[in-house]
Every structure is written in C-alpha cells, then in structure tokens.
Design a protein around this nucleic acid. Structure first.
Lengths: 202, 202
DNA sequence: GTCTATATAGACCGGTCGGTCTAATCATGG
DNA sequence: CCATGATTAGACCGACCGGTCTATATAGAC
C-alpha cells in the first residue's frame, strides 16, 4: 500500500511527492498560482508528470491545497518556536518581523507570505481552497493570541490584537516586496511592539 | 493626432481605450494578472485586439501598469473625499473600512485591494511595474499621514502610523476575502481607531 | 474632394497550458 | 521467483496563451 515510513531516513532522498509539494509551495509563493505551470514545478522537483497525477489525481488544485497546508504548518512551527523563546509578546513580534525581513532579503524580495498569493488568486472562487487557507490563517492568529494571553492580556482583547498583528504583517510583506525594502515590515514590527506594550496586563 | 477632448462628453460611449483599462483593472483585481487572459479583457470591454495593441504597444504589461495607475488614483480619491468629510482620523478609518466591507460584500468577496494581486504577482520580477505600484502605495500612505497630521499627530509618528494602518487594512482585506466574512476588516478598523485615539496630539 | 493618421477588426502564429493515457519499471509480500 | 500494486516515464491532446500582422474603416486638415 503506502510506502513504509522509511521516507524520513536521513540518508534517503525525499520521495517524489515531497519534492513536488516543496517545489510547488516555493513557486506558488513567489509567482502565484496561475503564474506557475505544472511543467515548471515538475522541472524544479525532478519528477515526472505521472507522479504528480499519481499523488494528486485532481491535479493542480489539490497540489495547491497540499502546498498551502505544508507551507502553513512550517510557518506556524517557526512562530511557535520563536514565541516560546521570546521574553514577551512585544519582543516576539520584533524578532519575528526581523526574521521575515531576513527572508525577504535572502530571496531578493521574491518570497513573502507563503499563502498570500494563493489566497488572492483562489479565494473566494475555489471554496475548498478557501477553507484550507482560512484554516491556516486561523491557526496563525491563534498562535499569536496564545502568546498574548501568556503575557496576561485578556482573551477577547488578545484575539482582536492578534488579528491586527497578523493583518498588518501580511500587508507589510506586500509593501516590502513591492518597494524591495525591508523597512515596512520592520517599522510595522516596532509599532506593533509598542502597541502590545501599552496593553500589558489588560 | 490625438483624439480631441470629446472623449468625456456625457452622451458619448467611453473610448475603447477607457473600456479596456476599466475591464483590465476589474479583472486583474479579482483574478490576478496571470489568471486573466487578454481575450477575456477584450470580451469584457467589447474591444478588438487591434485596439489593445494600438493603445498599448507593449501589450499586457503596459496595460497592467495603466490599470494599476487608474485604479490606484480612484482609490486615492475615495480616501481623500472620506478623509475630508470625517470629523477625526479615527472616525475616518472606521468609515473607510466600513466602505471596504460593503465593497467586499457587493462583489461577494471577489474584489479586495485593487493592487494587491498585481503587487504579489509582478513584484519584484517586473521592476517597472513595481515602481508604479510602489508609487500608488506611497500616495495612499501619504493621504493617511496627512489626515493624521490634521489631527495634531507629529509628522514622524504620523508616517509610521499611516504605514501601520495601510498595512493592516491590506492584510485584513486578504483575510476577509479568504474567510468570506467582513469581520476581519471591520475589527481591524475598530482597533486602528482605538489606537489612533490613544495618539491624539502626540 | 483627397490625403493622412488614427482606430477598428480579426485571422493567424508558435508556444505553453492543465490534463489524459499507455507502457515500462520498481518494490514488496506470498 | 512470481504476482501485484505502487510508481515512474513521457508522448500526446485540445484549448488557450500573448503577440503579430494585414486590411479596412473613420474622421479631421487642407
């Protein structure tokens, strides 16, 4: 049936499925859904077209959903790790936006939010994809909310604050990419930190 | 030479150029750049392909630039009008996000920010388009900054606040579109208003 | 009128799109 | 060692892509 769990062995090459999903996530992130052809994904992942339709019988749409889930989970892991290591919510936001700025520069401003392009192109026309993306965004917001609550901020307030933080970071990533400068995302990070500080224990 | 200025006569049908740009702006906004074909734009604008390449010899890219300029200017006009009519920056932000929520619902969440999709798909690969988009974003931010300064907020602070407001509204539009709910953009509007109030006269 | 530049009209092009299909190969359990 | 299903491999398909080109209509200048 399914390939046994050897797929994670250290010395083994990732399976074709993994390579396809990784390449798709990266390419969708930088070029968008419609702007990325299956041929390009296959070339980047060194996989044949047969494998793609073996693992994703419904083709490009299913692949986009899986890519969004994987990339979203990885993003969430990074957030959770940094949230755990930081001394306060405010410090966390500054560190996180700093990390985003680094990633922007490393990719020469080609890679922003891993989900934003997919969200704009697929929602709300593709309701299944929208549900997936909505779930990932909600998970991110929840991670932020938990971190704020750990600083003593009341749940209701933390939820609204988390939404503001997530929204402003998403928007700042767009502005930074467009301007090819890290300043927007860094400035927003600092402003958010100041805002959080003013909410300590409320 | 150029068609005389009859093009604005009230009883006259808009020129093919205008129709093409309007249709392109609308379609790019909802489906993205790569996801919108020239044939679709031509069908929507009832214009022949010859006209498109007559007005935009460099084709789709030039058309996207012009569509972004036109849509961006219209957005800026709306902001300026609402800013002038509002009693305070905070009230303005609430009214503006309310208007955005209405537009989202009217389009059944298909039309968010007129520039976001173009920005994510074209920047930073197309530096000319990036420059255009960056200019429009900067104009929006400046309109916000001016409104904040009119409330007595210091220029440096107003600039950073304007960036935060613009970013968070951009991000909230993505989240609202994905979730097919107006709640994110409305909630962000209220949070921003509260934030602005806390800055009165600083 | 005639001349000239603008604008309309759409057939046509090579290339790429997402998707289908058949055949070969591989790995594993009996 | 064979049987079986998972996987790889890529030729192939019709549709559509952005872009080019030639021919025609239209309108203002003189």
């Amino acid at each position: 049936m399914v390939r046994p769990s050897r797929s994670q062995d250290a010395h083994e090459r990732p399976t074709a499925r993994t390579r396809i999903v990784e390449a798709a996530a990266r390419l969708f992130q930088s070029q968008g859904y419609a702007g990325t052809g299956l041929t390009e994904i296959l070339r980047a992942s060194k996989a044949p077209k047969g494998s793609l339709y073996h693992y994703f019988p419904n083709g490009k749409r299913d692949l986009a959903g899986e890519a969004a889930r994987v990339a979203g989970a990885r993003f969430a892991d990074t957030m959770a790790r940094m949230a755990g290591e930081s001394a306060s919510s405010a410090q966390f936001v500054v560190q996180f936006t700093g990390q985003l700025a680094t990633w922007l520069e490393e990719s020469r401003f080609r890679q922003g939010c891993p989900l934003a392009t997919l969200a704009l192109e697929l929602a709300p026309g593709d309701s299944e994809a929208s549900d997936t993306l909505e779930g990932v965004f909600a998970a991110w917001q929840d991670a932020l909310k938990l971190r704020l609550e750990a600083d003593g901020i009341a749940p209701e307030r933390a939820g609204r604050l988390a939404l503001l933080i997530l929204s402003s970071i998403e928007g700042a990533l767009i502005l930074s990419r467009t301007a090819r400068k890290t300043e927007p995302v860094l400035s927003v990070g600092e402003e958010l930190a100041a805002l959080i500080e003013s909410h300590r224990g409320t």
